[in-house]
């Protein structure tokens, strides 16, 4: 029984790491957030039931993004079946089915997550400045809204880049996730 507890901890780790991203990703297909959550949870249930192994994080992501996409398309198909005669719906569905859309949405979610992770690792002031700068505020606008001098803003930005560099340089995070093998 201890072994199966271990399993659930690793499963939880995987869930915690990827659940929000996968929900956001699913929402780009389904528009509805609750339906997206349901779809993602169903995929996680499947992973648990089938005791699928993931040796590292990218393998897990690759599998899960694909599974969530397929789940969402299934949901859409059942919903669209009745209105499929409208040309615009068919075109929209073809676009959602395409690899291009799939990759674009993965990049959306993954890049946003990376950016957030990098900014969240910064000290509070630095993070505030970078977040505003991401929202396209100019240095002057940032300085005004935080009551700082423009030179302080520039200096803080420099510090921020320096701190974030190692985070963004390393290409892949390696995470060992083995789920079924301990369940003897």
């Amino acid at each position: 029984m201890n072994d199966s507890n271990l399993d659930i901890n690793e499963f939880k780790l995987l869930y915690k790491a990827l659940y929000p991203s996968l929900c956001l990703f699913a929402k780009s297909y389904l528009s509805d957030l609750q339906a997206s959550k349901d779809a993602v949870q169903e995929v996680f249930v499947k992973v648990w039931e089938k005791e699928i192994h993931f040796i590292e994080m990218n393998a897990a992501k690759s599998y899960l993004y694909t599974a969530v996409k397929n789940k969402c398309l299934d949901v859409l198909k059942s919903k669209y079946v009745r209105v499929m005669d409208s040309q615009s719906t068919i075109e929209e569905f073809e676009w959602l089915e395409s690899d291009r859309f799939f990759y674009k949405e993965i990049i959306h979610v993954e890049t946003s997550t990376l950016i957030e992770k990098a900014t969240n690792s910064l000290p509070y002031r630095c993070a505030q400045i970078i977040k505003l700068s991401l929202k396209n505020y100019s240095n002057q606008e940032i300085a005004d809204s935080l009551s700082l001098s423009i030179n302080t803003v520039k200096a803080q930005k420099k510090i921020a880049y320096k701190k974030m560099r190692p985070l963004l340089k390393e290409h892949y995070h390696f995470l060992l996730l083995v789920m079924a093998s301990s369940n003897f």
Partner: peptide, 28 residues
Amino acid sequence: LTVELSSMLDFKEIIAYCKSLSNFILKG
């Protein structure tokens, strides 16, 4: 369940691209 290698490689490319993209964006 197996992920075909080719699609796994595609995925690696995508993730690598996300890294460099986030780098550019953060630096404005």
